[in-house]
Design a protein around this nucleic acid. Structure first.
Lengths: 366, 366
DNA sequence: TTGTACGCGTTATCAC
DNA sequence: GTGATAACGCGTACAA
């Protein structure tokens, strides 16, 4: 689909399908007018009665509710949104729905929003700059009351800034060691990666490989590099592999490339799936983990904990993050919090969950 | 939140928050009227120009587009939806976002929808009857153009039927050996479970345990029972455990309960995660898989393939299913397909992907 | 307590 | 080709 000029594409969409002219056979939905006619009241009275206004007679109120139920009246949110200038929809944009942590974040946020009458519109970007931009336009067009965005690296910074300037509440769920373009609540991936790589370095490893998912993982990449530097290890580009999705398979294939040459003694993977795929390769090749190869993952999925060799992984409290994120968005929606020149920035610091796969004998070792 | 009388809850929502009276500091979005004023045209001409009507002068058309871009005009989908009686939103209801196969289904469907100008509203039910009913009401209220629903067992059959009667396009993504309440495209879970349990029975196992996730897994349950019966094995309730989510942990705990007594030689789990959790328990207890315990899972996740002992699992083509489901929904939307008295029913038959965990020496054994 | 009139932003039907 | 005018369904002043 044409991502260029996406607004134009949205504008002219109707020309492309022939649906408009078709006779709608949809049985008319019942409106307030219908129940007004039924009772010989005005639409207004019905409207007031339905929202239990005290300015309406208790008896008529009950009769209206009665008839509404009988006719199976369901309010038209679209019409309501138009007049109230609130859609009660929150947009949620994330790169890929297959990222378990991001989708868990979405789930928790959806639950919290639902409790306040909001619903969630979900869009994916595949980490693509144009898709991300397009998704933002769509959500603005749909008059969402707020947006959660897992931005991919520093894409669309200008657009994000302009949305913020338009006072559309938006909370970024990713960020790093740079000035964010909008208010944000996120786990510091830089620090997480730094901790992981440092840990491996301090266990004595000098050749630490790194697998990452491209632009979406830039912060992890820089964290990895910083850790090497601080531990006096020279960065070697040969030890880094970029993959295009976080799968066991990609981890498996990357391990084959990275480890066959020999020399490498440790791996830091930007996702647990990648780490577990690599783990599988090691097992097949008769490599012992952690003795021959130390492995650290990222996200601390349940799969990491239950792996053959329980996986050391970078972790953080998703529940805590989502709570903060929703709170911040509500503050922005109610404008308790004005859009200040400097975006609010709430950071969660990740920790390293140490298990067997890195070879460190912790007291809590599993 | 009050799930009873959900419509009333929706109706009276505004009373509960105090936002309505607050002064909106949102800088006014630009409307067609603004660009009309700017050019000394009528709103109508602007509207026509924006959608590239041939009934408008080419020069003015261009001027309108020009100004629209300058003012950063973004169309208001809410207003458009109101008059067109089409929201271009598709609702998607699923029990839990943490089910990888269901969420992959959602992802694939979202992509296909997006290519046609639709967006997706996502809701979760937690397999709860009232939540499911509530979600349906919300989506109807929001005037969605169609609904995908992973129904939980036979909940809300009447509501589903009434939505169908109201000619709101809806495709069910789950079903079984019973007359579905609406048009549906789904993988036959009964057959999948039947194949899995039969396979174990035919390998000689007589005590086959079963872990399932409650009402959402009824079809698998009956498939399991049917397989036992057809293989002359008496059903033993003691060998069945119900869990409330598909996690490694639940599988691990269930294995502890089921296997400690002894006697059981095989396990069929209604989800790969459960199976892998059980696998972990076996390893810790020194039980060999498949020699001491044969295990079969469901869904054929990547984790199953890459497990320590690659897991035999029930599988099907999600891509194929989503393609059929989207096609069917479009047919219903364009009313090529009238809502007939008898719902359309498209079934995908799952297959058993045999790997090492069940002990069967297939030629393709991994 | 209830009804009337108007507005929300857009599209569609007519005139001109 | 272009511009009034009337919808769409609901909320809210303001009258009655």
């Amino acid at each position: 689909m044409p991502l260029q000029n996406c607004i134009e594409c949205m504008i002219s969409f109707n020309d492309r399908n022939g649906l408009t002219t078709e006779v709608s056979k949809v049985s008319k939905r019942v409106r307030q007018e219908d129940i007004a006619k039924e009772l010989g009241l005005s639409i207004n009275s019905v409207s007031l009665a339905l929202k239990n206004s005290k300015r309406i007679n208790e008896e008529t109120r009950q009769r209206v509710h009665q008839v509404a139920k009988e006719l199976n009246y369901i309010p038209n949110s679209i019409a309501r949104s138009l007049v109230e200038k609130k859609s009660k929809i929150i947009g949620f944009i994330l790169p890929k729905i297959t990222n378990p942590v991001q989708i868990e974040t979405a789930q928790l946020i959806e639950r919290k929003l639902m409790a306040n009458g909001y619903n969630m519109m979900l869009m994916t970007t595949d980490s693509d700059r144009d898709y991300e931009s397009f998704a933002l336009d769509i959500l603005v067009s749909r008059q969402v009351d707020g947006i959660f965005l897992f931005p991919t690296n520093k894409q669309n910074q200008d657009k994000i800034r302009s949305i913020r300037n338009a006072h559309i509440p938006m909370v970024l769920l990713s960020g790093g060691n740079y000035e964010p373009a909008s208010d944000s609540v996120y786990m510091n991936q830089f620090k997480g990666a730094y901790k992981a790589a440092s840990h491996l370095a301090q266990l004595g490893h000098r050749q630490i490989a790194f697998i990452h998912g491209g632009p979406a993982n830039m912060e992890k990449y820089t964290g990895y590099q910083a850790a090497l530097k601080d531990n006096g290890i020279e960065f070697d580009e040969e030890l880094v592999i970029t993959v295009d999705n976080y799968s066991y398979e990609q981890g498996y294939l990357s391990a084959a490339k990275l480890f066959s040459k020999g020399g490498v003694t440790a791996l830091f993977a930007s996702s647990d799936y990648l780490a577990l795929g690599a783990l599988r390769w090691c097992r097949e090749q008769g490599m012992r983990v952690p003795e021959d190869m130390a492995i650290v993952g990222f996200d601390d999925l349940e799969a990491a904990q239950y792996a053959e060799i329980p996986l050391t992984s970078v972790t953080y409290k998703v529940e805590e993050l989502t709570t903060l994120a929703v709170e911040l968005l509500y503050r922005l929606i109610t404008e308790e919090e004005q859009a200040k020149s400097k975006p609010i920035r709430i950071e969660i610091e990740p920790t390293l969950q140490i298990r067997s796969s890195c070879g460190y004998k912790s007291k809590n070792r599993q």
